[in-house]
Amino acid sequence: MSRREQIRRLGFYLFASIIAFFNLMPFFWMVSTSLKARGALLVLPVQWIPSPVSFDAYERLFSLFPFGRAIFNSLFVASATTAIVVLSSSMAAYVFAKIPFRGRDTLFTLFLMTMMIPGQVTMIPNFLVLRYLGLLNSFLGILAPSVFNAFAVFLLRQNMRGIPDALSEAALIDGAGYAAIYVRIIVPLSKPVLSALSVITFMGAWNDYLWPLIVLTDRAKMTLPVGLSLLNTQYGNQYNLLMAGGLISMLPILILYFFAQKHFEQGLSIGGIKG
């Protein structure tokens, strides 16, 4: 290895490690804080490593707030949202990609045009629609709007167009109907993009804040982000508590990430357009 190459290599590890430090230091701080007793929070000089280590925050977290319930709510809302988005969008995408009919392109253009309107514009009327339907403060209310997702339809349709028509024609001759073709051919062949879509949808729903904040008011129905922000307003200076809560809210996604890193990265790069 040439000297120059050695320097380059050294430079790489130096820079990469400095950035990694800035990335991880906050998490270290988060873990460290969550393990401090309340009294150790406001001590100078700052304690980097808590002494003594205290699990007080974790215990109090679950007694002050139905945190276990919030984890369940978040899991439920994120999974259900993902299921709805994937099912509804893939069905529509199948029609837009494979079944021609008059006015199809116009309808598709309408779908795309709705993507230009930011969510904040429809947020207030959506709230009113749910209020009118009596769905405020219910999971159904949180989930309902995800039945229409123009971005997901667009993404899947682009992908499904790449599936050769010969496959569906062969299935047609073998006696498959449109539903069977969708289930047996289109969905299996769209698996990579469906997994990517599932992952970003799940993550988006898991981390979503504004919409559940508007719809949910009942503590027993709150998702993790809403619960955390409520904790923030009630116990704003008890950071050991808040950090413990934040850590717990991160864990499921992190676990999922380590198992499906590829899908996450793929999903988030194609999800770029979503904004």
Partner: peptide, 15 residues
């Protein structure tokens, strides 16, 4: 480098 991306904004903002 990717871990912060996965964190929810509420947790990150509290942090």
């Amino acid at each position: 480098y990717y871990v912060p991306v996965l964190t929810s904004w509420v947790a990150a903002a509290l942090l």
